[in-house]
C-alpha cells in the first residue's frame, strides 16, 4: 500500500499524469497551449503553486478544522497564485502578457485543489512535496507537449524557430480552440493505446 517517495514522484509522470490520466485542469490546458513556451510557462507557474500549497496544507493538516478545510485551502492557494502573478509581472512581463487572465485562474484549477484535498491533507510534508513536484512536472510536460504539437502544426515552428520545410502550409486550425480539443483528444487516445498494451 505505502508507496516509496520515488513512486510518489513518478506517478505524476505517467500513471496519474494530468491532464491526460487525471483529466483535470482542462481550462488552462486548452487555452494557453498555443506554443511550447506558454505551455511550459503555465506548467511551471502551476507547479510552483502546487508544491507550495501542498507543503503548507500538509503542515497545517492537523490544525485546519475539517468543516472549513476548503476555505483554508483556497486561501493558501490564492495567496501563492498572487505571489506568482506579482513575481511574473516583475521579472517575466512578456510571459505574463501571454498568459494574462489564466494566471489568476490557477486558483480554481482543480488539480491544485484536488491534490490539497486528496493528498496533502492526509500525508506528511515530504510525501506531499514529492507528490506536488511529480504532478507539477507531469502537468508541465503535458502542456509543453500539447503546445509543441499545436505550435508545430499551427505555425510550423518550435520554440519560435522555423523547423518545418518551406513547402509546409501552416494548419492554423490547430491553434484555434477546436484544434485544442482535437489535439488533446488525439494525445489522450495515443496515451491510452500505449497504456493498454
Amino acid at each position: 500500500m505505502a508507496k516509496t517517495l520515488v513512486q510518489e514522484f513518478t506517478k505524476g509522470l505517467w500513471n496519474e499524469i494530468p491532464p491526460f490520466r487525471l483529466v483535470l485542469g482542462l481550462c488552462p490546458t486548452l487555452a494557453v497551449t498555443k506554443s511550447v513556451e506558454s505551455g511550459i510557462g503555465m506548467g511551471l507557474a502551476t507547479t510552483f503553486v502546487l508544491v507550495c500549497s501542498n507543503v503548507l496544507v500538509s503542515l497545517l493538516r492537523n490544525v485546519i478544522p475539517p468543516k472549513v478545510r476548503i476555505a483554508c485551502f483556497i486561501i493558501v492557494i490564492a495567496t501563492f497564485v498572487t505571489v506568482v502573478e506579482l513575481v511574473m509581472q516583475a521579472y517575466a512581463y512578456p510571459l505574463f502578457l501571454t498568459l494574462g487572465i489564466f494566471i489568476p485562474l490557477i486558483v480554481v484549477n482543480c488539480i491544485v485543489l484536488g491534490r490539497s484535498e486528496a493528498f496533502a491533507s492526509k500525508n506528511n510534508l515530504i510525501r506531499s512535496t514529492a507528490d506536488g513536484l511529480g504532478i507539477g512536472t507531469g502537468f508541465t510536460l503535458s502542456l509543453g507537449a500539447l503546445g509543441g504539437v499545436r505550435e508545430l502544426l499551427g505555425y510550423g515552428t518550435l520554440l519560435g524557430k522555423d523547423i518545418m520545410p518551406a513547402s509546409f502550409e501552416p494548419f492554423s486550425f490547430a491553434i484555434e480552440a477546436p484544434g485544442a480539443f482535437i489535439c488533446l483528444g488525439l494525445m489522450l487516445c495515443i496515451m491510452n493505446l500505449i497504456g493498454s498494451k
Partner: peptide
Amino acid sequence: VVLTVLSAFSGGLLAAIRDNTKEQI
C-alpha cells in the same frame, strides 16, 4: 481563529511581496 490567522498571514505576505516588486513591475 484558524481562518482569521490564515487570512491575516496571507494578507501580510502579499503586502510585503507587493511592496518589494512594485518598482520592478
